[in-house]
Nucleic acid binder design. Structure first.
Length: 453
RNA sequence: GGUCCGAUGGCAGAAUGGCUAUGUAGCGGACUGCAAAUCCGUGUAUGUGGGUUCGAUUCCCGCUCGGACCUCCA
């Protein structure tokens, strides 16, 4: 491993590029914030999951053991409201949404985390943490709520680079009167009858949003771990609050050594979000283009920059995948080649996937001319990026079970006969007819092949 | 209002104190009965005003514009 370039990542805590050195090299520990399961995830949510996927694949190639935890928030006001609107039990809503979530990510070839803890299964750990925070003087009970006392943690604001006083000046919402400081946030709040709740020393209630991540990361990864990531919109207040809770419980520790934040996906130059209504679900995108085209689109911009989603860009990504698969079709790769150094190098530099993709283009050009090593490199590089899960045949012809391939072959024979007879009008008519059914013909030196449009 | 990030060719997008990627789209050509695919060729860019420097797209400052966060958000 010593010959590999060091992995450098941008740490949003220090706002600089840093060499990542694991706390314990025998177990590289990563935590990413997962979804709140009240509705299907959309293309914006997907971006951080996909960024994490690239990071994890790359870490697994470099370290003997990687533990990747991604949580599921399955208790939250939005869930309660949605379940009420749908007139269905909360468990039915969360169960269905989680299944959809897994299905969507699997379609994108996003590897599952090693551990996917759910908030409702870790209430006890949260209550334990809340108790510790109260005992240490970092939290207080007020009107049935337990609140974190931000003034008790001098380093509050250090992660997101803001001061409590500047926050106070900008507060736009009504502040509950029982808060000691407007920045104090809920660790535990009462649940009225009819809403989900758990018994606790503070009465029947449910956890605040931030405490679950502190409790679950501590439970599965310990008081200090290597990378904590999520969308850049989580930096404040979510991650700032997590950090405050965790460090107040375990003051001698680091909590997360390295903070990674993924840039927002935009739609018409605005953040794609449910509240703005400018979102597309993953299913929408998959109806439009293959999953690997979507993956390539995400890879084509750096994870920290914003990515303005358009259908045109998705189409372009699909054409690029077409070319990669053509290259692999031309020169079938050997499957066990290690990823080429240029890719390792690009990813080592803060996961520079756009730079890595330029290398894929070079390999594809060479593979197109029949160079075996280039095809091997193209394939191995793509594998590291989660691409080329299909064969070229599957890519171009799709699920042939749903098509009458013998009929297509028959039409191709008919057209061939027409061409031999110089009856080009008939030959073109057959081609047009197939095109209407979404079948494109290509006359190559080795005969005519077909592919799906 | 506060904090932060960004601005590179039609679009996407790297890199770099001097040699100006890469892709895609466009255009021209080869190949083809015609297409498609493939190949060859080709034009266009560092928001703006200063500063540092022999030299700035790159470093520094101002300005403009865009976005995110400050409220649930990936």
């Amino acid at each position: 491993m010593s010959h590999l370039p060091p992995l450098r990542l941008h740490n949003s805590h220090t706002r600089s590029l840093e060499v990542v050195t694991p706390i314990t090299p025998d177990n590289f520990r990563v935590y990413f914030c997962g979804p709140t399961v009240y509705d299907r995830v959309h293309l914006g949510n997907l971006r951080s999951m996909l960024c994490a996927d690239i990071l994890i694949r790359f870490l697994r190639a470099r370290y003997p053991r990687v533990t990747y935890v991604r949580n599921i928030t399955d208790i939250d006001d939005k869930i309660i409201i949605r379940a009420h609107e749908n007139q269905e039990p909360i468990e039915a809503l969360t169960h269905r949404t989680i299944e959809d979530f897994h299905e969507d990510l699997a379609a994108l070839n996003i590897l599952p985390p090693d551990i996917e803890p759910r908030a409702t299964q870790h209430i006890e750990a949260m209550l334990h943490m809340i108790e510790q925070l109260i005992n240490r003087g970092h939290a207080y009970v007020a009107e049935g709520n337990v609140l974190f006392d931000v003034r008790s943690f001098p380093s509050y604001g250090a992660l997101s680079g803001r001061s409590l006083d500047s926050l106070r000046a900008g507060t736009r919402i009504d502040v509950a009167s029982y808060k000691r400081d407007p920045g104090d946030f809920v660790l535990w709040k009462p649940s009225p009858p009819g809403e989900p709740g758990w018994e606790s020393p503070y009465g029947r209630g449910r956890p605040g949003w931030h405490i679950e991540c502190s409790a679950m990361s501590q439970h599965y990864l310990g008081d200090s771990f290597d990378i904590h990531g999520g969308g850049s919109d989580l930096l404040f207040p979510h991650h700032e609050n997590e950090r405050a809770q965790s460090l107040c419980c375990a003051p001698k520790n680091e909590f997360a050594r390295h903070w990674l934040h993924v840039g927002m996906l935009l739609s018409n130059s605005e953040k794609m979000s449910k509240s703005l209504g400018n979102f597309h679900t993953i299913r929408d995108a998959l109806d439009h283009a293959p999953a690997e085209a979507l993956r390539l689109l995400y890879l084509s911009s750096h994870y920290r920059s914003m990515l303005d989603f358009t259908w045109e860009k998705l189409d372009e990504a699909r054409r690029i995948m077409d070319r990669f698969y053509r290259a692999l079709e031309k020169t079938p790769p050997h499957k066990n080649t290690p990823p080429p150094g240029a890719i390792i190098h690009a990813l080592s530099d803060d996961l520079n996937t756009p730079l890595a993709l330029t290398e894929l283009h070079q390999f594809a050009d060479a593979a197109m001319t029949g160079q075996q090593d280039a095809a091997d490199h193209l394939y191995a590089a793509g594998q590291l990026l989660g691409l080329f899960a299909s064969t070229p045949g599957e890519w171009f012809q799709g699920d042939t079970a749903s098509l009458d391939t013998s009929k297509i072959e028959q039409k191709i024979e008919e057209r061939l006969a027409a061409r031999k007879a110089k009856d080009f009008a008939k030959a073109d008519a057959i081609r047009d007819q197939l095109a209407e059914q979404g079948i494109l013909l290509e006359d190559g030196p080795n005969g005519t092949t077909w592919r799906k449009a």
